[in-house]
Amino acid sequence: MTGSLRLGAVVKVIGTAYWGGPHKDLTLGMPIATCMHVGLGDYVVCIRGQYLKGLLRRWSGRIESLLRTHGIIRSENLTIKLFGPSALEGRAKATALPSLVRVFDAYPVRDLPSAESLFRDGAFTYLSDSSGRVYRGVTDVFTRVRLCDVNGRASEGALFHEVRALHGTLMYFELAVAGLGPDELTDAARLLITSLAQLKYSSPGRACSLGDVRVVGLEPNWLRTDKLVEKLLRFVGEGGG
Protein backbone atom coordinates (compact mmCIF):
# COMPACT_ATOMS: atom_id res chain seq x y z
CA MET A 1 0.00 0.00 0.00
CA THR A 2 1.49 3.31 -1.05
CA GLY A 3 0.58 6.81 0.01
CA SER A 4 1.26 10.38 -0.95
CA LEU A 5 2.46 13.49 0.80
CA ARG A 6 1.83 17.16 0.08
CA LEU A 7 3.81 19.99 1.59
CA GLY A 8 3.30 23.74 1.24
CA ALA A 9 6.14 26.16 2.01
CA VAL A 10 6.95 29.84 1.73
CA VAL A 11 10.33 31.36 0.87
CA LYS A 12 10.66 34.82 2.39
CA VAL A 13 13.11 37.01 0.49
CA ILE A 14 15.78 38.56 2.69
CA GLY A 15 17.37 41.67 1.22
CA THR A 16 16.64 41.43 -2.51
CA ALA A 17 16.61 38.30 -4.64
CA TYR A 18 17.02 37.37 -8.27
CA TRP A 19 16.18 34.19 -10.17
CA GLY A 20 17.16 33.99 -13.78
CA GLY A 21 14.53 33.35 -16.40
CA PRO A 22 14.46 32.47 -20.10
CA HIS A 23 13.44 35.96 -21.18
CA LYS A 24 16.11 38.53 -21.90
CA ASP A 25 15.31 42.19 -22.23
CA LEU A 26 17.62 44.57 -24.11
CA THR A 27 16.62 47.54 -21.95
CA LEU A 28 16.64 45.79 -18.59
CA GLY A 29 19.40 43.29 -19.22
CA MET A 30 18.56 40.67 -16.63
CA PRO A 31 14.89 40.58 -15.70
CA ILE A 32 13.74 38.24 -12.93
CA ALA A 33 12.12 34.93 -13.93
CA THR A 34 8.43 35.27 -14.71
CA CYS A 35 5.85 32.55 -15.39
CA MET A 36 2.36 32.67 -16.84
CA HIS A 37 -0.05 32.38 -13.91
CA VAL A 38 -3.32 30.89 -15.09
CA GLY A 39 -5.45 32.54 -12.39
CA LEU A 40 -4.08 36.05 -12.98
CA GLY A 41 -3.73 35.53 -16.74
CA ASP A 42 -0.41 37.34 -16.76
CA TYR A 43 3.32 36.80 -16.34
CA VAL A 44 4.15 36.88 -12.65
CA VAL A 45 7.42 36.80 -10.70
CA CYS A 46 8.16 33.16 -9.96
CA ILE A 47 10.79 30.69 -8.88
CA ARG A 48 10.76 27.77 -11.29
CA GLY A 49 10.02 24.38 -9.73
CA GLN A 50 13.16 22.94 -11.33
CA TYR A 51 15.25 25.48 -9.41
CA LEU A 52 13.72 24.59 -6.04
CA LYS A 53 13.89 20.89 -6.81
CA GLY A 54 17.58 21.16 -7.62
CA LEU A 55 18.27 22.86 -4.28
CA LEU A 56 16.23 20.27 -2.39
CA ARG A 57 17.97 17.42 -4.17
CA ARG A 58 21.40 18.83 -3.38
CA TRP A 59 20.65 19.29 0.33
CA SER A 60 18.84 15.99 0.59
CA GLY A 61 21.86 14.15 -0.82
CA ARG A 62 24.21 15.98 1.53
CA ILE A 63 22.37 15.43 4.79
CA GLU A 64 20.81 12.00 4.24
CA SER A 65 23.69 9.97 5.67
CA LEU A 66 23.97 12.33 8.63
CA LEU A 67 20.28 11.90 9.42
CA ARG A 68 20.63 8.13 9.15
CA THR A 69 23.65 8.12 11.46
CA HIS A 70 21.57 9.88 14.11
CA GLY A 71 18.59 7.57 13.59
CA ILE A 72 16.32 10.30 12.24
CA ILE A 73 15.63 8.33 9.07
CA ARG A 74 15.88 4.57 8.55
CA SER A 75 15.29 4.07 4.81
CA GLU A 76 18.31 3.37 2.62
CA ASN A 77 19.02 5.47 -0.50
CA LEU A 78 16.03 7.71 0.09
CA THR A 79 17.39 10.58 -2.00
CA ILE A 80 17.77 8.27 -4.99
CA LYS A 81 14.28 6.87 -4.39
CA LEU A 82 12.78 10.34 -4.15
CA PHE A 83 14.66 12.18 -6.85
CA GLY A 84 15.40 9.37 -9.27
CA PRO A 85 18.53 7.31 -9.94
CA SER A 86 20.15 10.15 -11.86
CA ALA A 87 20.22 12.28 -8.70
CA LEU A 88 23.59 11.15 -7.43
CA GLU A 89 25.05 8.91 -10.09
CA GLY A 90 26.58 11.72 -12.05
CA ARG A 91 24.49 11.61 -15.20
CA ALA A 92 20.96 10.90 -16.30
CA LYS A 93 20.25 7.35 -17.39
CA ALA A 94 17.90 6.55 -20.21
CA THR A 95 16.28 3.87 -18.07
CA ALA A 96 15.85 6.11 -15.06
CA LEU A 97 12.37 6.06 -13.58
CA PRO A 98 10.71 9.42 -13.02
CA SER A 99 11.34 10.86 -9.59
CA LEU A 100 8.68 10.49 -6.91
CA VAL A 101 8.90 14.16 -5.95
CA ARG A 102 7.13 16.85 -7.92
CA VAL A 103 8.01 20.45 -7.06
CA PHE A 104 5.89 23.22 -8.53
CA ASP A 105 6.65 26.86 -9.33
CA ALA A 106 6.64 29.37 -6.45
CA TYR A 107 4.47 32.50 -6.77
CA PRO A 108 4.23 35.62 -4.58
CA VAL A 109 1.48 35.56 -1.94
CA ARG A 110 0.14 38.49 0.10
CA ASP A 111 0.91 37.09 3.56
CA LEU A 112 1.29 33.87 5.53
CA PRO A 113 -2.45 33.41 6.23
CA SER A 114 -3.01 33.59 2.45
CA ALA A 115 -0.45 30.83 1.94
CA GLU A 116 -2.07 28.72 4.66
CA SER A 117 -5.53 29.13 3.18
CA LEU A 118 -4.20 28.27 -0.29
CA PHE A 119 -2.80 25.05 1.15
CA ARG A 120 -6.14 24.26 2.83
CA ASP A 121 -8.04 24.88 -0.44
CA GLY A 122 -6.52 21.77 -1.99
CA ALA A 123 -3.58 20.50 -3.97
CA PHE A 124 -2.03 23.02 -6.37
CA THR A 125 -5.01 25.41 -6.27
CA TYR A 126 -2.56 28.29 -5.93
CA LEU A 127 -1.51 27.70 -9.55
CA SER A 128 -4.95 28.84 -10.75
CA ASP A 129 -6.03 31.07 -7.87
CA SER A 130 -7.66 34.36 -8.83
CA SER A 131 -8.89 35.49 -5.41
CA GLY A 132 -6.03 37.96 -4.91
CA ARG A 133 -4.04 35.84 -2.49
CA VAL A 134 -1.48 35.28 -5.27
CA TYR A 135 -0.31 38.57 -6.76
CA ARG A 136 2.25 39.87 -9.22
CA GLY A 137 4.99 40.54 -6.70
CA VAL A 138 7.03 43.69 -6.14
CA THR A 139 10.26 44.16 -8.03
CA ASP A 140 12.72 46.96 -8.58
CA VAL A 141 15.51 47.61 -11.08
CA PHE A 142 19.05 47.68 -9.74
CA THR A 143 21.85 49.11 -11.86
CA ARG A 144 25.16 47.33 -11.52
CA VAL A 145 28.51 47.20 -13.21
CA ARG A 146 30.81 44.27 -13.84
CA LEU A 147 34.23 44.49 -12.20
CA CYS A 148 37.39 43.72 -14.07
CA ASP A 149 39.13 40.61 -12.72
CA VAL A 150 42.58 42.08 -13.41
CA ASN A 151 42.50 45.58 -11.95
CA GLY A 152 39.40 45.27 -9.73
CA ARG A 153 37.76 48.34 -11.23
CA ALA A 154 34.59 48.80 -13.22
CA SER A 155 34.87 47.31 -16.70
CA GLU A 156 34.16 49.62 -19.58
CA GLY A 157 30.75 49.14 -21.21
CA ALA A 158 29.77 46.57 -18.61
CA LEU A 159 26.89 48.43 -17.04
CA PHE A 160 23.85 46.17 -16.59
CA HIS A 161 20.50 46.12 -14.88
CA GLU A 162 18.94 43.46 -12.71
CA VAL A 163 15.28 43.18 -11.81
CA ARG A 164 15.09 41.82 -8.26
CA ALA A 165 12.31 40.83 -5.89
CA LEU A 166 12.19 43.07 -2.84
CA HIS A 167 12.77 42.26 0.82
CA GLY A 168 9.89 40.49 2.50
CA THR A 169 8.36 39.03 -0.68
CA LEU A 170 6.74 35.69 0.19
CA MET A 171 7.03 33.04 -2.52
CA TYR A 172 4.64 30.12 -1.95
CA PHE A 173 5.09 26.68 -3.50
CA GLU A 174 3.93 23.13 -3.03
CA LEU A 175 5.64 19.80 -3.48
CA ALA A 176 4.14 16.34 -3.66
CA VAL A 177 5.56 12.85 -3.10
CA ALA A 178 3.76 9.69 -4.16
CA GLY A 179 4.40 5.96 -4.31
CA LEU A 180 6.00 5.34 -0.90
CA GLY A 181 4.88 3.09 1.97
CA PRO A 182 3.92 4.63 5.37
CA ASP A 183 7.37 4.18 6.94
CA GLU A 184 9.20 5.56 3.93
CA LEU A 185 6.71 8.42 3.74
CA THR A 186 7.51 9.43 7.32
CA ASP A 187 11.22 9.28 6.51
CA ALA A 188 10.61 11.31 3.34
CA ALA A 189 8.76 13.97 5.36
CA ARG A 190 11.65 14.16 7.82
CA LEU A 191 14.25 14.37 5.06
CA LEU A 192 12.38 16.95 2.97
CA ILE A 193 11.54 19.23 5.92
CA THR A 194 15.16 19.09 7.08
CA SER A 195 16.37 19.84 3.53
CA LEU A 196 13.99 22.79 3.32
CA ALA A 197 15.38 24.08 6.60
CA GLN A 198 18.86 24.09 5.05
CA LEU A 199 17.75 26.61 2.44
CA LYS A 200 17.99 29.22 5.21
CA TYR A 201 21.73 28.66 5.21
CA SER A 202 22.22 28.66 1.45
CA SER A 203 21.21 30.95 -1.35
CA PRO A 204 17.86 30.12 -2.92
CA GLY A 205 18.65 32.41 -5.81
CA ARG A 206 21.45 33.98 -7.82
CA ALA A 207 23.74 36.88 -6.96
CA CYS A 208 23.61 36.96 -3.15
CA SER A 209 19.91 36.18 -2.89
CA LEU A 210 18.91 35.00 0.57
CA GLY A 211 15.67 33.50 1.78
CA ASP A 212 14.02 32.11 4.85
CA VAL A 213 11.85 29.02 4.43
CA ARG A 214 8.68 28.33 6.38
CA VAL A 215 6.47 25.26 6.03
CA VAL A 216 2.80 26.27 6.01
CA GLY A 217 1.11 22.90 5.59
CA LEU A 218 1.65 19.16 5.54
CA GLU A 219 -0.68 16.37 4.45
CA PRO A 220 -1.72 13.67 5.34
CA ASN A 221 -2.49 14.60 8.93
CA TRP A 222 -1.26 11.31 10.40
CA LEU A 223 2.30 12.42 9.62
CA ARG A 224 1.94 15.04 12.36
CA THR A 225 1.51 12.33 14.96
CA ASP A 226 5.17 11.50 14.39
CA LYS A 227 7.09 13.34 17.13
CA LEU A 228 10.14 14.08 15.00
CA VAL A 229 8.07 15.46 12.13
CA GLU A 230 6.20 17.66 14.60
CA LYS A 231 9.49 18.90 16.08
CA LEU A 232 10.92 19.63 12.64
CA LEU A 233 7.77 21.47 11.61
CA ARG A 234 8.06 23.64 14.67
CA PHE A 235 11.64 24.40 13.70
CA VAL A 236 10.76 25.27 10.09
CA GLY A 237 7.86 27.52 10.88
CA GLU A 238 4.58 25.70 11.09
CA GLY A 239 3.14 25.41 14.58
CA GLY A 240 4.72 28.45 16.12
CA GLY A 241 8.32 28.68 14.89
Binding site: R48, G49, Q50, G84, R102, V103, L127, S128
Partner: peptide, 17 residues
Protein backbone atom coordinates in the same frame (compact mmCIF):
# COMPACT_ATOMS: atom_id res chain seq x y z
CA UNK B 1 -8.16 15.53 -10.89
CA UNK B 2 -4.88 16.97 -12.01
CA UNK B 3 -2.74 14.87 -14.31
CA UNK B 4 0.80 15.60 -15.47
CA UNK B 5 1.56 15.40 -19.18
CA UNK B 6 4.89 15.29 -20.97
CA UNK B 7 8.48 15.75 -19.87
CA UNK B 8 9.91 17.11 -16.60
CA UNK B 9 6.72 16.51 -14.60
CA UNK B 10 8.87 16.19 -11.46
CA UNK B 11 9.99 19.78 -11.97
CA UNK B 12 6.40 20.94 -12.06
CA UNK B 13 5.92 20.96 -15.84
CA UNK B 14 2.79 19.72 -17.61
CA UNK B 15 0.29 19.86 -14.72
CA UNK B 16 -3.23 19.89 -16.18
CA UNK B 17 -6.63 20.51 -14.72
Amino acid sequence: GRISVGKYVGRGYGLCE
